[in-house]
Amino acid sequence: MEKKSLKGYLYLLPALIIILVFTIYPLIKAVLMSFYEGYSIINGSFDAIGLGNYKELFSDKVFRKALTNTSIYVVFVVPCSILLSLLIAVLLNSKIRCKGMFQTLFFLPYVTSVIAIGIVWSWIFNSNYGLLNYVLSWFGIEAVPWLNSPDYALMALIIFSIWKSMAFDILIFLAGLQTISPDLYNAARVDATPKWRVFLKITVPGISPMIAYAFIMGMINAFKVYNEVFSLFKSSAGPANSAITVVYYIYDKFYNSADYGVASAAAVVLFVIILALTMIQRAVSDKKTA
């Protein structure tokens, strides 16, 4: 018995070592670093332990901007992506031609590099030659400086991200739709159920676990948004930092300003926000299913 369990732990060891070294240790270290004042990354010395980094962080306008931007981003991207994905998943699940082709098409963004997509979208958003402004011009809307104006940068980022995160949502909604028994739809037909009621009373409840999952994952990912910003604005945070996000801020503080303490404090704040929201979300969905 003893021997057996020892063997089991040995099998776990490689993965455990990697997790300990690259996840658990940095996590603890980041929390510690956020409290070190005057920290030197070269010799690991620090002057004092205190809340100095947090004070500096919250008095930084750029961080507050990053926090606001990220919140706006989450509030728009997550629900919009879920709603649109739901609609598309239901359409893809119905009897249409070239179903397989459309499914592949909608899943492509998920398996394509964000940087590559970012380049395409920065062309779409181009104020002079961009596809989006061209389409808008049909409706008599004047050219919008999507990527060059602080007023539109965040909106451009949100549009880009909604499109990008839909791929994953559509995939899990499609998987969820397959689990709903076709007999339920037949029963609803015999019961003369209007289409929208079928959607609300059968489809949505049927995939509610997937919706909850998409919501949590979407929110966590949305709070961590960085790649999208980096690729869309060509390694900047948009004109005048107008599309800066919390992770972008952390990255900038750490690598560009070498302000390790503040970067760590920002990381801890982000961690706490995500943790809290996930816990609330779980409590709500547990209550619903109970």
């Binding site: 007999d183 029963a187 037909r189």
Partner: peptide, 21 residues
């Protein structure tokens, strides 16, 4: 005539009860 206008009641093998109601 479509099922909803046939004035039939149908009971499915697996009952097909709406699980969330």
């Amino acid at each position: 005539i479509p099922p909803e206008e046939r004035e039939i009641g149908l009971v499915f093998q697996n009952y097909a009860l709406y699980p969330h109601m």
